[in-house]
Amino acid sequence: MNTIWIVLPVLLVLMFQLGIELDGAAFRRVAKHPKALFVGLAGQLLLLPAAAFAVGTLSRLPPVYFMGLMLIACCPGGSSSNVFSMLARGDVALSVTLTALSSIITLFTIPPVMAFAARIVERHTETSIDLPVAKLILQNIVLLFLPMAAGALFRRLRNEAAERVSAVLKRVAFPALMLLAALFFLQYTREIIANIASLGAATAAMLLLSTGAGALLARSFRLGSSARRTIVIEIGMQNAAQAIAVASSPLVFNNGEMAIPAIVYALVMNVVLLAYLKMLR
């Protein structure tokens, strides 16, 4: 079974639902406080990939898992972060805006980051990695930007219907992602079990390093507590479905093993962030 045919509809639903949540008023509110937006984007686009590179290098992960760790780190924020921000009494408008902007910006940042990671792997190992940049950008536009734009247009044209659809999609999006993780686990049970200790430690270290640095950065900019909580969650919650889609897609890497770090990260991410919510309470 090729999991890409399960990943695609899950990712499309997640991005369509994010598009529905986009609100011009939310963008305008956040634009009045650009420091929080800057810190959140810096955390996602700079701190997280840097933490992944450091952890992947120091832990001496095999090339395919090093690439997988870098891939999940340079993907945009996950749409479930908006729900977690609400539960954490964070700034939901900031959360939605950061998720949307990171989804657009990473269309162009994923290729150079992954190309850099591939060069590092090739320089220090005998592994050759082919990265079709044009196909990667095209796939990301089709799977991320277009469904998000469609969701935003749907909200603009049919606001009440969009609200009803969004309410349904919010309930099914997370279970769909967990179903995807379960099916992927069944397909790669042996590989996941054999590497669960090293990958679990690596993903947890990456998450704690990046969110801790993001929290310190937010505090140094004297952001309010709600913005700080939102930034921690946004940095910590990545779009695992996109990482799986890029890794397993026949158009890009066509490597299911490269998606394993994203599966492990999805599990670790939820454990850590649920613990964070409990700590806040």
Rank of each mutant, 00 (worst) to 15 (best):
Leu22Thr: 15
Leu22Cys: 15
Asp23Trp: 04
Ala25Asn: 12
Ala25Trp: 10
Ala25Gln: 15
Phe27Tyr: 14
Phe27Glu: 08
Phe27His: 11
Phe27Lys: 10
Phe27Val: 13
Arg28Asp: 13
Arg28Met: 12
Val30Pro: 00
Ala31Cys: 10
Ala31Arg: 14
Ala31Thr: 10
His33Phe: 12
His33Cys: 05
Pro34Glu: 12
Lys35His: 13
Ala36Gln: 06
Ala36Asn: 04
Ala36Arg: 00
Ala36His: 03
Leu37Phe: 15
Leu37His: 10
Leu37Thr: 12
Phe38Trp: 13
Phe38Gly: 15
Val39Pro: 02
Val39Cys: 08
Gly40Asn: 08
Gly40His: 00
Leu41His: 09
Gly43Lys: 00
Gln44Ser: 11
Gln44Ala: 06
Leu45Tyr: 10
Leu45Lys: 05
Leu45Glu: 04
Leu45Val: 11
Leu46Asp: 10
Leu46Ala: 14
Leu47Gly: 02
Leu47His: 07
Leu47Ile: 14
Leu48Met: 15
Pro49Cys: 11
Ala50His: 09
Ala50Asn: 07
Ala52Trp: 03
Ala52Ile: 07
Ala52Lys: 05
Ala52Arg: 01
Ala52Gln: 06
Ala52Glu: 02
Phe53Gln: 00
Phe53Pro: 00
Phe53Cys: 04
Val55Asp: 05
Thr57Tyr: 08
Ser59Thr: 14
Leu61Trp: 04
Pro62Tyr: 11
Pro62Val: 04
Pro63Phe: 13
Pro63Ser: 09
Pro63Arg: 03
Val64Lys: 01
Tyr65Met: 12
Met67Asn: 06
Gly68Ala: 11
Leu69Cys: 05
Leu69Lys: 01
Leu69Pro: 01
Met70Lys: 02
Met70Gln: 09
Met70Val: 09
Leu71Ser: 07
Leu71Met: 14
Leu71Lys: 05
Leu71Asn: 03
Leu71Phe: 09
Ala73Ile: 08
Cys74Leu: 10
Cys74Ala: 15
Cys75Gln: 03
Pro76Asn: 05
Pro76Arg: 03
Gly77His: 03
Gly77Ala: 07
Ser79Trp: 00
Ser80Leu: 10
Ser80His: 06
Ser81Trp: 01
Ser81Asp: 11
Ser81Pro: 11
Asn82Lys: 08
Asn82Thr: 09
Val83Pro: 07
Ser85Tyr: 06
Ser85Gln: 05
Leu87Ile: 14
Leu87Arg: 12
Leu87Asn: 07
Leu87Ala: 08
Leu87Val: 09
Ala88Trp: 01
Arg89Cys: 09
Arg89Ser: 15
Gly90Arg: 00
Gly90Met: 02
Gly90Lys: 00
Asp91Gln: 09
Val92Met: 04
Ala93Leu: 02
Leu94His: 02
Leu94Arg: 00
Ser95Thr: 05
Ser95His: 08
Ser95Glu: 09
Val96Ser: 03
Val96Gln: 00
Thr97Pro: 00
Thr97Glu: 01
Leu98Ile: 14
Leu98Pro: 07
Thr99Asp: 05
Thr99Met: 04
Thr99Ile: 05
Thr99Gly: 03
Ala100Val: 12
Leu101Lys: 10
Ser102Gln: 08
Ser102Pro: 08
Ser102His: 08
Ser102Ile: 07
Ser103Trp: 01
Ile104Pro: 01
Ile104Trp: 06
Ile104His: 02
Ile105Val: 15
Ile105Thr: 08
Thr106Asp: 06
Thr106Ser: 13
Thr106Trp: 02
Leu107Gln: 06
Leu107Ala: 13
Phe108Trp: 14
Phe108Gly: 11
Thr109Asp: 06
Ile110Ser: 03
Pro111Leu: 13
Pro111His: 10
Pro112Gln: 06
Pro112Ala: 09
Pro112Val: 02
